[in-house]
Amino acid sequence: MQSNATRDLVVGLFVLLGLLALSYLSLQVGGVELSSGEKIVLEATFDDIGGLSARAPVRVAGVKIGQVSGIDLDEDLRATVRLEVDADVGLSIDSSAAIRTAGLLGDQFIAVELGAEDEVLLDGEAFQFTESALSIERLVGQLVHDAGV
């Protein structure tokens, strides 16, 4: 079987096209980061995380700086959430972490509000101040109760 130069070229182009489509799906659409900068892991403990799930985004001022890498129940039966965030952001040690909802019914994410201290949180440290998820059901229940219906 002699090798056919044109055919080989076309097959090469096909493989290239397929790999290009694959890498578009993986990198752009699938969101795989090849050269992700250094990450640190922070902890935050909440009374109620609502519908927060792993891979939920962590945002400062609305900008994504990381994601939830894991959720565990600690010995006091409170939820400990591990946050994987960019190391170079530098969150001050009195920052607070709150669970918010995107829109009225959207996905939940962690919003970090910055504090005033100069010292920053380091790898493995925990947020001092946290704010649990706001439950719409509880809110509506309270409203109905207060209105005395």
Binding site: M1, R7, V10, V11, F14, G18
Partner: peptide
């Protein structure tokens, strides 16, 4: 190893289907 065979088959299966 007959790599040329594989390339020809890949042409038939892949390129012609694109």
């Amino acid at each position: 190893t007959r790599f040329g065979f594989f390339v020809r088959a890949l042409y038939d299966a892949g390129v012609l289907s694109v």
